[in-house]
Design a protein around this nucleic acid. Structure first.
Lengths: 335, 335
DNA sequence: CTGTTAGCGCCTTCAA
DNA sequence: TTGAAGGCGCTAACAG
């Protein structure tokens, strides 16, 4: 039951080196030899041992997916897209979730487990600190970011500022003036983080409309449904004058709708709600949103990362478009 | 920059074998030696090469997650739970999605890419054919199933038949008699597949109530929102007499609600809808459902699989409970 | 408790 | 175009 490369070599009547070359599609193998080797390998059910191949070659044909969550809309879809791109070229996707507690500052991400495990790393959705990025670079492997803006690295994301602008302009255009904001966990140190960008879009649009956003209009929804719900309650407790809420994700927006319902407020008559994402269930819920293509971002980032690994292309910044989708959760405020 | 085990050994003044033993927590290492080795390894930032360790030991400390989808509620949550259990003991999760086209029969899953890559395989949610299971066993590694009932293997799932019974009895109890069913892709060959079990529960409850389910009352929703929507339209086109729909997943149930809305039907006044899952957004949508703990199933299955790998425990069947959660999508039919 | 010594299975120069 | 041979970095016997 060895079924190692030498078994194939013996049966095919060639050397192990030739088997290796033939099966990996390298040039310098005669077509006849290659066919024969391939046939023998198939017959024997031979599959090269990845450990042995990695050890000898230094390449793992594996990409590490570094993500805080796998069961949230954006993350699940990015992972889906990335995995599809990787699988298409025979690369594996290794899942690394790092617990993000709700405390600030969180425990730093330690990428050392990835050492010698991956040919590249795809960071999904979480703004890393400079120290964490440095640690990642210590792995000496290409790194790509999706949905979070390290513009000095290969990055695929949307224009968070613009998304915040689109959402808020929609509300202001409907006549809202007291617009609350449910943010994710904004990172004060990184103005380029998605929550920060979205918040800036919000505050700038308000100011441009002659409205000075009050400090209490902004609450932290931790990027999930319950967080959106809880924080919207806090927002409305303190600021009942608010007539509209812009949430930095659809899941938090859905939490905001739940909060409104808890309080006997009608959406959109008493409270307008807009999110960001384009969640699959947005239509059912009637959620107005600024939509993005998460799975497309994931697959493109994976492809660009593979290019980088192969020595093709340079680290670049790809900004995906966002589109406002108007549904039933927003309307003009009541007179 | 070798930073290999021999570097650590040299600096610590011991042999590589001792370093290996010390860092892996094996016995037969004096506490003093272990401390010293650990300190040196930390200072040098040494992390063992997984390829080399796998090659030498035959173990990969990696589990393959075989799943058709990563961005559907059940699957995303099982993966989340499994990854958490694995990470806790230093195992990696390797993601393998296999495309499930909507054609029947689908292309067989080929597990040969997993050869030498994993210490065990966790199959999530898809009923495999006997041939596919055989191929999996050819890997000579423990296999576990989540959410699909290979009862001859380690399996963690719910009682699909009972779930179908709970959902249908709820509807019949409300007075419904013409109850449609949106199934996933039922596998005629495997009576134990989730869609089949849920369907059987449905038809048995109807028969017990003296109702013979018509062939056209059952449609295939392919386990997603759009499939649920499309198939519910087809169902209601052909059978407008139906007053309630039992969908085999919450996502399909949400599609059914969308279809009802498309047709100007009110839920639950004109059409009652019940699903299975306990989707996070069920509350927002007001969906009555038979809920299950997907992430708990994932983490438990991973733990049991690790036990099997470690030679502890036997393949067993764990059936998780389901609970009917009544919400606003079901009510008595109109007179 | 610790060191020595073979490999694990493949890739990759270097020669032919 | 192919073969021979060394080595990738670690683990696991076995000896001491």
């Amino acid at each position: 039951m060895t079924h190692g490369i030498d078994e194939v070599a013996r049966v095919a009547g060639v050397s192990t080196a030739t088997v290796s070359r033939a099966l990996r599609g390298l040039p310098n193998v005669s077509p006849i030899t290659r066919k024969r080797v391939e046939a023998v390998a198939r017959d024997l059910g031979y599959v090269a041992s990845p450990s042995a191949a990695s050890l000898a070659s230094g390449r793992t044909r594996t990409i590490g997916l570094l993500t805080p969550w796998v069961n949230r809309w954006f993350f699940a879809n990015v992972i889906e897209g990335a995995e599809r791109s990787l699988r298409a070229v025979g690369f594996d996707a290794l899942l690394y979730t790092f617990d993000i507690a709700r405390e600030v500052p969180r425990r730093p991400v330690d990428p050392s487990v990835l050492r010698h495990r991956v040919d590249g790393v795809l960071v999904v959705g979480l703004p890393l600190t400079d120290l964490e990025v440095e640690a990642l670079e210590g792995l000496d492997r290409p790194v790509a970011f999706v949905g979070t803006g390290r513009d000095d690295h290969l990055t695929v994301r949307l224009d968070d500022h613009e998304a915040g602008v689109q959402a808020t302009e929609h509300l202001v255009g409907l006549g809202h003036r007291r617009v609350g904001h449910v943010t994710g966990t904004p990172d004060e140190e990184h103005s380029w983080s998605p929550p920060s960008g979205r918040r800036q879009g919000w505050s700038e649009v308000l100011r441009a409309a002659g409205i000075e956003p009050e400090a209490g209009w902004e609450v932290n929804g931790h990027f999930d449904i319950q967080g959106g719900r809880t924080s919207t309650h806090a927002l409305l407790d303190a600021h009942p004058e608010v007539t509209a809420v812009f949430a930095a994700s659809d899941e938090m927006a859905m939490g905001a709708i739940l909060a409104a319902r808890d309080r006997g407020l009608r959406v959109p008559e008493d409270l307008s709600v807009v999110g960001i994402d384009g969640h699959d269930l947005g239509e059912l819920v009637g959620l107005t949103t600024v939509s993005q293509d998460a799975s497309g971002q994931g697959s493109q980032a994976a492809r660009l990362l593979l290019d980088l690994i192969a020595g093709r292309g340079e680290p670049s910044l790809v900004v995906h478009p966002t589109v406002l989708v108007e549904r039933a959760s927003t309307a003009a405020p009541r007179a």
